[in-house]
């Protein structure tokens, strides 16, 4: 039998009781809290982090995708055969 005194996370809708799970807070520790404190607390550092992050992400992402393409098409592309036609 459910008790009728409502707990703080329960909402009464007449005879229906809606129980929400209490919110769970994850305690940040170590790196996460350092990152939060150093970067996210100030808009200037946060914006800077976004710009730098974009740059780093873009460079790595492009390099990886280009490497996939180049190794898949090894020997077929112009850069693979041009040494045969370039005169010094």
């Amino acid at each position: 039998m459910l008790a009728c005194e409502l707990n703080p996370w329960q909402i009464s809708l007449g005879s229906l009781v809606v129980c929400s799970a209490p919110e769970i807070y994850i305690k940040m520790a170590g790196i996460a809290s350092t990152v939060y404190n150093v970067i996210c607390r100030r808009s200037s550092t946060f914006a800077l982090a976004i710009i730098a992050g974009t740059f780093v992400f873009e460079r790595t992402f492009d390099t990886i995708s280009n490497q996939i393409f180049d190794s898949y098409n090894k020997g077929k592309q112009w850069k693979d055969i041009k040494h045969k036609y370039e005169k010094e």
């Binding site: 459910l2 009728c4 005879s15 229906l16 009781v17 809606v18 129980c19 929400s20 799970a21």
Partner: peptide
């Protein structure tokens, strides 16, 4: 994760 139950009035 919330739950709706029927709790009849006493």
């Amino acid at each position: 994760s919330r739950k709706i139950v029927f709790a009849p009035k006493k």
